[in-house]
Design a protein around this nucleic acid. Sequence first.
DNA 1: TTTTGAGTTGTTCGA
DNA 2: GTCGAACAACTCAAA
Length: 484
Amino acid sequence: MSISPALVWFRSDLRLQDNPALTHALERGGPVLPVYIDEEDEDDQWREGAASRWWRHHALVALERALQERGSRLIVARGVPGEILKQCLRDTQAGAVYWNRRYEPQAIARDTAIKKTLTESGVEVASFNAALLHEPHEIRNKQGGPFQVFSPYWRHCLTRPVAPPVKLRAGEFLAPANWPRSLRVEELELLPRIRWDKGLETTWTPGEEAGQRRLREFVKRGMDTYDEQRNFPAHDGTSRLSPWLRHGELSPRQIWAAVKNASRGAGVFPPSRGASLFLNEIGWREFAYHLLYHFPHTTTQPLRTEFARFPWRDDPGGRLLQAWRRGLTGYPIVDAGLRQLWETGWMHNRVRMVAASFLVKHLRLPWQDGARWFWDTLVDADLASNTLGWQWTAGSGADAAPYFRVFAPVLQGRKFDPDGEYVRRWIPELGRLPAKFIHAPWEAPQEELKRASVTLGETYPLPIVGHAEAREEALAAYQSLKKG
DNA sequence: TTTTGAGTTGTTCGA
DNA sequence: GTCGAACAACTCAAA
């Protein structure tokens, strides 16, 4: 008797290597049907942003091609996952469904319901960990609860073994007798109608292969100097792996293994200070998932409840928010970051902190507004990391930053972009200002501005808020939260 | 149980 | 110009 087919439901794991659900299906011995469902969730308040959709389109095309090279296909559908899966099971006489787990609150609820229904109807269902080194439910502190501070969390994680990547066996996949109907990836209409994606195209190469290439390159050339280089946004000093990670074209286990492999020569793990700090960032991603899983309401609400009464600024007509989004705040380092984001779907991490701090502290606009904008525009938009990042910036999260930490945009610019190279790249209208004035054009003498063809208030805005006053007001706002 | 020390990424002020 | 201290109060982890 032949073995019935198995469905592999691809989601945020658009890769063939280190894909436990896929490997499990192959090892079962029967035909394998890779399925991708473009989800229609009516009440999902975190609809994917356009930049992320662009990436997903190309990731799916790459996955489809990789499957075809192994004599298989990608069945593409659109609709409500539970129903699509049921239909697929009927059409193909499949006896099993496998997938890799997701951790967003809505996804957990939905997957649990699907698992229950399918199991009850006699289908074998199994889910796997493909996205994390350590799943949130595995990690507990000594009191048995979730960690809420990064350092002890990560210290604890580092004492645990990390599973090696799951190997995909060589050769072709066994195809089913008949394939169900499939849409073409183009029919999902993930690409923008208006061609604003040129900047994305010239910046990124989505797909598992390109992600692996970038990982190898970074480990070889960038990792050991990561500690010194990562804070300079004009340099390519960060890994830039986030978008591949986000779409699951790359897994943290693969990253871990690559770093381990690199440490064989050095004889220690991690092999360098740079490597150790790089793994810390992977740890922050893990921590973000840990927090999202245990505190699912924090995607929209502050973890520290007193922040619900934070005195946000009144912004009639949303003018301040709009200026921030467009990169027209008058603070070059902030504006450069927001323009890099708009053009490439990505922003350097140092600048993310400065730009986010500016929104929350200088403009005193709700961090949720910033989180929404990042969600819409980042190719690496990840609910867990985005939530953690913004709550951390606002000081409303678990890992409380000192209230007095207000990034000074001019100082940050001078410190981390000393030659103004980053600002010049993203704000061409300031391109001819000398480095001395580029982070504070309003301090430049008239003749310098004239020579650089800059007319403040016309070719480039004057600061929309003053630093000193904004800082004072922010500190006062934080003071007002104090109990008693 | 109680206590202690620490807590990603900073800025300002005064010596 | 450089340097160190001050900047809330609180929560969490661990001893």
